[in-house]
Amino acid sequence: MATAEGVQLNHLARESSDVKRLASFYQQVLGFEQIESPNFGDFDVIWLRVSPSLSMHIIQRDPQSKLPVGPYAASSSVRDPKQLPRGHHVSFSVSNFDSVVQKLKEKGIETFQKSQPDGKTKQLFFFDPDGNGIEIMSRDSS
């Protein structure tokens, strides 16, 4: 059986009932840049550049979808980042960890921060406006 060659992550997708609100959050909080998005006609989509080789696609949720929004969606009563399930988040590495922490505080976004026992890895967990889990991490190179 042949395996895929040259595999690399191309994009992350998040669906939302308000794509503009969610895209604005990622632009304001993490500095993602809006890039050209195709016109799919019957639903809205906004593409954001995360890095030179990675984008995030914010896609309008299908109102007819039978799939659950998820237990940590905006309508959920669980909003404490300490309760974020360990397997349900996307993580971004940053070179200015402390600045990002400060920016989130200024925006009133509740966070949960911890450091790993090695003392080099710092992690910050929070939710986007639709209840998707986010981790920001920095690894001290010293």
Results as ranks from 00 to 15, higher is better:
A2N: 11
T3N: 11
A4F: 03
E5V: 10
E5G: 06
G6E: 07
V7H: 04
V7A: 14
V7E: 05
Q8M: 01
Q8L: 00
L9V: 02
N10K: 12
H11Y: 04
H11K: 08
L12M: 12
A13N: 14
E15D: 07
E15L: 12
E15H: 08
S16W: 06
S17Q: 05
D18S: 07
D18V: 02
D18Y: 04
K20I: 14
K20C: 13
R21E: 01
R21W: 00
L22P: 01
A23E: 08
S24H: 04
S24A: 13
F25K: 00
F25N: 00
Y26S: 10
Q28L: 05
L30F: 03
L30Q: 11
G31W: 04
F32R: 02
Q34L: 09
Q34K: 11
I35P: 03
I35L: 03
E36T: 08
P38I: 11
P38K: 10
P38L: 13
P38T: 09
N39Q: 06
N39W: 05
F40M: 04
F40H: 12
G41F: 07
D44G: 05
D44E: 12
I46C: 10
I46F: 15
L48S: 00
L48E: 00
R49I: 01
V50W: 03
S51L: 05
S51Y: 12
S51N: 04
S53E: 05
L54M: 01
S55Q: 03
I58R: 09
I59M: 06
Q60E: 14
D62L: 08
D62I: 13
S65C: 13
K66H: 09
K66Q: 15
K66A: 04
L67V: 08
G70N: 08
P71E: 09
P71N: 15
A73E: 08
R79L: 02
D80L: 01
P81R: 07
P81S: 11
K82Q: 03
L84K: 01
L84N: 00
L84C: 01
P85C: 02
R86S: 02
G87E: 13
V90S: 04
V90T: 04
S93P: 15
S93D: 11
S95G: 14
N96L: 15
N96W: 09
F97K: 15
S99A: 12
S99K: 08
S99V: 10
Q102R: 02
K103I: 05
E106Q: 12
K107W: 02
K107H: 09
G108I: 10
T111V: 08
F112P: 07
K114T: 07
K114V: 06
K114R: 14
S115C: 08
S115A: 09
Q116C: 03
P117V: 12
G119Q: 13
T121N: 09
L124F: 00
L124S: 00
F125Y: 10
F125V: 03
F126T: 13
F126S: 12
F127C: 06
D130N: 13
D130S: 09
G131M: 11
G131W: 11
G133K: 00
I136E: 00
D140S: 13
D140I: 11
S141T: 14
S142K: 14
